[in-house]
Write a protein that binds this DNA or RNA. Structure first.
Lengths: 338, 338
DNA sequence: TTGAAAGCGCTAACAA
DNA sequence: TTGTTAGCGCTTTCAA
């Protein structure tokens, strides 16, 4: 690889001059020199050495994307349709802005921070973290951090975060179900913290508002893994007569359930109404098409990237907690039973 | 961030000694010193500076994953279910092996190589590349490269590649269709090079073997984008009576087609049989479940990572062209019409 | 308008 | 067994 020194030498100028024209600090360089240097740079096919730059300049132009994901055989952090859409846009946005993406999945906040520091990462986007990890990361990271879809233990406005009005829209889709005549609605999620907790809360509020029982008993915790899911659905199936509608905290589970019922000979929405949340690629591609809350994963990614870069470039010290709006999309998986 | 020098100073030893114990070159260090250094390292929370290491040692422990993907509004390289499974396992394997992943999507071989060189990337995994780009990359990259799912212009054994016996298994699933009594089978793909060309070739060979016409006319080129797909399917629909079965070069398109036919009131498999290729997450989750060729994206990723690392660590100079076997999975999307 | 020189943190050859 | 030193490629301050 050709170095600045070599370029300088072959031109009979100093490395400083070459470095200056590379960086456009050309106020103090004669037009002629600029042209000669530029030409040589091109001719010799100069490619900067980022390690040297990082070492000297104390910035790396790397943005770390860290993903918390439970370790499961045969499953990975990228596979989930929502995650992959997010990662894809983040990659694209980072690249377009002239930064580099380092991707790291882990369930250990400390490990992630070590990676970030060892590479002198300019900024961090953190996704899927629990409240405690967020706190740890915020307190120890030596670079700007933007969280995606996180909820926090302490003051949420102390964090840079881009999320969704989960509670509000979970309430809205629940109310939609109620308007369609449903009174006995089960809620299903694979955990009870963060985003899922908010969605559950939204569901409860909507139920209570209409004097319907949002009893503990209507919460189904979906177990992990293929067999876990199966077992949960079996349990649900056994109690199917108690409900006329099911609200899944994510489309993925909603679609699996539609298939499960299909296999059992139960028709959605005729015999059971189903709604999801996210509007991922499954929701649009299943039959019946899924009624759900549409959120724009791409937009979340875009805003997150924009935010870290704003902070990296010191155009903002802090961006705060951004909660996006969503949209109810009515499709074919709910029956009006009024 | 604390440096080796600081650790050394606070202990009254030299940086060399500290560096040596960090790297386990402890043959020439007294046990007592080792212990003291280790303790201090821990106490001060020493984190190595990778830029400095890279600069001094000329290796980075970064593995670049480069993905070729056509630039489309609202679509990205990670979103595709096959890609995301692949990326997910690659990330996990790289991390487990103690390397770092830099992800870069682009449709420009030169750009990708610049990124790789600028970061002194130790090795490269390239995915979705065309034959010409592969050649360019192989010839200019200064580090080991492993391709995934590529086909080449020149001697394929000159490349490190991990792929599938596409032609063979496309032949097998075509023969399966023929055994089920199908004689008029359309083939659909979104391009006609690389993997898709091989699958088309396999289809043609199987047809010819059974004295059936594999006419040019039965090849449908699926146009890009949502409207492109729609148009192609409309064209297919107009000619639906010419065929009893459809062979899609990828599950994604097969599943979209099943839905398309569903919306048109045409039942799969009763009125039209459909098969795909890949066995991605859609194939398992659509109803009727899709008959397809199962390939293991995760395994491809694992082998690719293992291969680059083998070359990086000089345990092999070359791994060659590995073509994996696949498996026919018979599900519910084909009707026996014999 | 241009250049010399120090220093970023680390490794490795060599000396003590 | 331990330490000194040069150098990796680049940026930046300061001097010319």
């Amino acid at each position: 690889m050709v170095t600045i020194k070599e370029v300088a030498f072959s031109l009979g100028v100093s490395p400083t001059t070459v470095s200056n024209v590379i960086h456009g600090n050309t106020k103090e360089v004669s037009p002629r020199t600029i042209a000669r240097v530029r030409e040589k740079l091109d001719e010799l096919h100069y490619i900067p050495n980022m390690s040297a730059r990082t070492l000297a300049g104390n910035f790396s132009r790397i943005i770390g994307l860290i993903i918390r994901y439970p370790v499961m055989e045969g499953k990975n952090a990228v596979q989930d349709p929502f995650n992959s859409e997010l990662i894809g846009t983040i990659e694209a946005e980072i690249r377009k802005a002239g930064f580099f993406l380092m991707l790291y999945a882990s369930d250990n906040a400390q490990e992630v921070l070590n990676v970030a520091h060892t590479w002198n990462v300019d900024g961090l986007i953190a996704f899927g973290m629990g409240a405690k990890e967020c706190q740890e990361i915020k307190e120890t990271a030596k670079m700007p951090v933007v969280f995606i879809d996180c909820y926090f233990l302490d003051d949420e406005n102390a964090y840079n975060n881009v999320g969704l009005k989960d509670r509000e829209y979970a309430g809205k889709i629940t109310e939609y179900l109620i308007e369609q005549g449903h009174k006995r609605i089960a809620f299903l999620a694979d955990n009870r913290v963060g985003v899922d907790f908010e969605r559950w809360s939204g569901y409860c509020q909507a139920m209570e508002k209409h004097n319907l029982p949002a009893v503990e008993d209507s919460f189904f915790m979906i177990s992990y893994g293929d067999t876990g899911i199966q077992q949960t659905y079996d349990a649900l199936y056994a109690r199917k007569d108690e409900f006329t509608a099911l609200f899944f905290a994510s489309d993925y589970y909603a679609c699996l359930a539609i298939n499960y019922f299909y296999d059992k000979g139960i028709r959605v929405p005729d015999e059971m109404s189903v709604v999801g949340f996210d509007d991922n690629i499954f929701a649009r591609n299943i039959r019946p098409k899924l009624t759900t809350v549409q959120q724009n994963a791409g937009e979340k990614g875009r805003i997150a990237v924009e935010s870290v870069i704003k902070m990296i470039e010191k155009k903002a010290a802090f961006v705060g907690n951004i909660r996006l709006d969503a949209e109810l999309v009515i499709r074919d998986s709910v029956k009006n039973i009024t």
